[in-house]
């Protein structure tokens, strides 16, 4: 008995319990958020395509994805006979854990940030590149050629576009002088970075959105899944909850990319022109509003554009995005050096 109470004391004193509680809350909130994003995607897709979208389960179909999730949980987990069982089972966790980890550093509003790390942007870039290992493992271990092709494409794609995401964020970091996300938002009290950095910031934002869409493996960069070419790509052989992990991770990743863009370019939880500064909780609203506008933009891309071919994907990155990005980086440095930023 004594040992147990000692253990509890230890947990409380070191803050492990707090961390576990926060982690649990985050997990629940973002699992629901992921489901909501799936529903949103389906609704938005339907509105783009002259359809109604899910409207049967619950009011206006609000519980559709919850029903889907329940279905996926209750499904049998299938797999191929010659699959590398250990890696095959490990792969989905890589993907889902990294995308949930990334959420920890976001400042949702003034005091709502789980983990205010001083290398926040770097942490996000690093974490998002671990996710691709899960995709590679999943494609490789499931012993399916279509999955393998999908996984290889994913490797090629993510390694290339990581550069663009990184450099376009670096361009903005020159402006802020800090990698800490809360610090980045502090800087934006005198104008959102996209306004402060004007031309190079807008270019960096465009590149970031293109590369970010590619990072999440969404159309028009969905080489990895490319359902008309590869069936379902890397997760062809996954079913049930393991598939759901991949699926959910894609949507949470989309949220992360949009949330990072909100934080770095659009002032995070800051309200436009400080109109709701007296109400701190409105920060959460502004953060989510800005994020969902960007999420909608990514959905708009997805339901409009055809998919690129794999070599064109690389051409776009190495011949267009990367050179422009590097020039843009220098341009931003010059602008900061000459103090040409716009301060409101």
């Amino acid at each position: 008995m004594n040992s147990i109470s000692n253990m509890i004391d230890w947990f409380v004193s070191t803050g492990v319990l707090n961390m576990a509680m926060i982690a649990l809350i985050y997990l629940t909130v973002f699992a629901v958020l992921g489901l909501f994003l799936v529903l949103l995607e389906r609704k938005v897709a339907a509105w783009f395509q002259l359809r109604i979208g899910p409207n049967r389960v619950g009011y206006l179909g609000l519980f559709q994805t919850i029903a889907d999730a329940l279905k996926l949980v209750s499904k049998e987990l299938t797999g191929t006979v010659k699959a590398d069982k250990f890696l095959y089972n490990l792969a989905p966790y890589f993907v889902i854990v990294t995308s949930l980890m990334a959420l920890a550093v976001f400042p949702f509003t003034r005091d709502l940030q789980a983990f205010d790390i001083n290398i926040g942007v770097f942490f996000l870039v690093a974490i998002s590149s671990i996710g691709v290992i899960g995709i590679l493992l999943g494609g490789w271990s499931s012993n399916n050629k279509f999955a393998l092709i999908g996984a290889m494409r994913s490797g090629v794609q993510t390694i290339s576009y990581e550069l663009s995401v990184g450099i376009s964020l670096l361009t903005m970091v020159i402006l802020t002088g800090s990698l800490q996300l809360s610090e980045i938002i502090e800087v934006q009290k005198s104008g959102w970075l996209i306004v402060q950095g004007h031309i190079p910031a807008i270019i960096a934002f465009m590149i970031y959105m293109i590369a970010g869409t590619a990072e999440t493996n969404r159309a028009p960069f969905d080489m990895v899944e490319a359902e008309s070419e590869l069936g379902a790509g890397y997760h062809t052989e996954y079913s049930g909850m393991k598939f759901a992990y991949f699926f959910l991770a894609e949507f949470i990743n989309m949220f992360i990319i949009a949330a990072l863009a909100t934080t770095v370019f659009f002032g995070g939880w800051l309200s436009p022109f400080g109109i709701t500064d007296s109400l701190p909780w409105m920060g959460l609203f502004w953060f989510l509003a800005k994020t969902f506008v960007l999420v909608f933009l990514m959905m708009w891309f997805r339901w409009t554009f055809p998919r690129l071919r794999v070599d064109q994907l690389l051409t776009l990155e190495w011949k267009y995005l990367l050179p422009i990005n590097l020039v843009n980086l220098v341009l931003m440095a010059v602008i900061v050096w000459l103090n040409l930023t716009i301060q409101i």
Binding site: V44, F48, F305
Partner: peptide, 9 residues
Amino acid sequence: GMRVTGKYF
């Protein structure tokens, strides 16, 4: 292209 789909949206 985005204008076309946007109009339908």
